[in-house]
């Protein structure tokens, strides 16, 4: 349950950004934030799921401009796209906290012997000690993939392990 406030009130997400949330009675919710680069942007999420992406005028912060209107499905696709790199970033943060632990992304190229094979086929854990923690395919993120998850061409693996292990796995997957 989201706490809803009638006025823009800062809500902390990830403990870093201030995203203010405003109730639009009868319409839905509005989120606003100012990016590090100084862009004041907003999202209106209507009750039926449509999303409007807004940017605010520099000379008048009260006025917004509609950048794009998205259906529920479109907004979900965009959210997936935005979610994928952020996930990798979080793994990177985690690896910073554990000495010796590294995270990396490995792409399955067309030349790779593992294109079209499964996660288990790579034998990553057994041979290199590296864990495959997520697989990105066409904007979709699969966290903690099953051993029999297929790895199509251009899929990207998010892996964690020691530096040597990751180098070994990279060579193995490149073929």
């Amino acid at each position: 349950m989201i706490v809803v406030l009638a006025s823009p009130a800062p809500v902390h997400h990830d403990g870093r950004m201030d995203i203010s949330e405003t109730l639009l009675p009868g319409v839905g919710l509005r989120y606003e934030l100012t990016t590090t680069n100084g862009d004041h942007i907003g999202l209106v999420v209507a009750r039926h799921g449509e999303v409007t992406l807004l940017c605010y005028s520099e000379d008048d912060p009260d006025v917004s401009f509609t950048v794009a209107r998205m259906t529920r499905e479109e907004s979900e696709a965009v959210a997936d796209l935005l979610g994928a790199p952020r996930l990798a970033e979080r793994f990177a943060d985690l690896s910073r906290e554990v000495p010796g632990l590294m995270a990396a992304q490995i792409e399955i190229t067309a030349e790779s012997p593992f294109a079209g094979r499964t996660v288990a086929d790579t034998r990553a854990r057994t041979l290199t000690g590296v864990s495959i923690v997520a697989v990105f395919t066409e904007g979709k993120v699969l966290v903690s993939p099953d051993p029999d998850t297929l790895l199509p061409v251009h899929a990207t693996l998010v892996v964690m392990g020691s530096e040597d292990g990751i180098n070994a796995l990279q060579k193995r997957i490149a073929g």
Partner: peptide, 10 residues
């Protein structure tokens, strides 16, 4: 009119 983001809208 694209005014859902404006401050006066709520």
């Amino acid at each position: 009119l694209g005014r859902l983001g404006n401050r006066e809208t709520p």
